[in-house]
Each structure stands twice: as C-alpha cells, then as structure tokens.
C-alpha cells in the first residue's frame, strides 16, 4: 500500500523530469521541473528526512525556480514567446543513447551488488540532533558553506550587473 503510493510518486517525478527536459516552452519546462522537485521532497519526507524535505521545498520551489524564471524572462528572444528553437535530432538521439547506456550500467551494478540493508523502521532524526551535529562536528564545513554562498551570490550579482552600461548606451542611440 505504502510502497505502491511511493512508486506512483516516484514514477510521476521521473515523468515530470523527462517531459520537462523535452518541452520547447521553457516556462512549462521549469514548472514541470518544480513538480519533479516536489516529488523529490516527498521522497525525503517518506524517508524520514523531514527537515531536508522542507529545505528542498524552500530552496528549490521558493528560490531556485524564481531565479530560473527570471533568467528565462530576461533572455527571451521575443516579447511574448519563450519557445526555443528545436534542437538537432541527431544530438537528441545520441543524448538518449548516452542516457540509457549510463542507466544500464548503473542498474546492472545496482541489481547485482550485495547491499547491506538494515530492517529497522524509518529512522528519525530530530532537528535538535541535526543542529547539534551541524554546529558541532561539522561547524567548519558550515562556515565554509556560508562563505561559498555569500561569495557566489555576490559574484552572481556582479556578473549579472556588469555590462549593463553598454545596454543603456545602446538604447540611448
């Protein structure tokens, strides 16, 4: 019962991802990809990583999707159309071949591996434990990741804002 529901959600997630990667309308792609991210958050919730599921929701559905949508609107070719030109069929074919080849290799390895499986019920980790580990053993990593985020966001702003003067000049002409 529970597994059937999970498999359904996982299949839906995969389908959303696959369709998102093959659509021509970029906005629809991103919205379907958000469905895919939601599916992944559901998986985390099922696996007992509650904090992670909500973080996924906050970061991907709330933030990354917004950045992507803004980027699409800022880089479209015509005012109302966001459909991209069709890509070459041979490239798509080769990409599919590569994708299935990698999938085959991974699946073969996975199905034949002897994986140690614990039969314990869903492990639970409280936010308090997570916080203690994050601020304890992993505090250095936490600081580094904060630094990376700050630098990356500042860099993003600088990159996106540079070259703005040229456009203003162009418009003035």
């Amino acid at each position: 019962m529970m597994t059937a529901a999970l498999i359904g959600i996982l299949l839906l997630t995969l389908a959303a991802g696959a369709v998102a990667m093959s659509l021509r309308n970029l906005i629809h792609s991103v919205l379907l990809l958000i469905v895919c991210w939601l599916g992944i958050a559901t998986f985390y919730l099922w696996a007992g990583a509650e904090f992670l599921a909500f973080s996924q929701l906050l970061v991907y559905v709330g933030a990354v999707s917004m950045v992507v949508l803004f980027a699409i609107l800022l880089t479209r070719r015509s005012r109302i159309d966001v459909a991209v030109a069709p890509d070459s069929a041979s490239r798509a074919l080769w990409a599919l071949v590569a994708g299935f080849a990698v999938l085959g290799v991974l699946a073969y390895g996975m199905l034949n591996a002897k994986l140690p499986v614990s039969t314990s019920p869903v492990p639970s980790v409280s936010v308090r434990d997570l916080g203690a580990q994050l601020a304890g053993t992993h505090s250095a990593a936490l600081l580094v990741i904060g630094l990376i985020l700050t630098v990356a966001l500042l860099g993003g702003v600088v990159i996106a804002a540079s070259g703005r003067a040229d456009i203003m000049e162009e418009k003035g002409k």
Binding site: T13, L14, G17, A18, A20, M21, S22, C36, I40, V84, D87, R91, A92, W94, A95, L96, A98, G99, F100, V102, L103, L106
Partner: peptide, 12 residues
C-alpha cells in the same frame, strides 16, 4: 533521474 538529467543536458 540522473540519466534524465544527463540526457537533457546533452541534448538541449
């Protein structure tokens, strides 16, 4: 999911 992403990144 990884292969979906891979195929997408290669084909588009």
């Amino acid at each position: 999911l990884f292969c979906v992403g891979l195929a997408g990144a290669l084909s588009r």
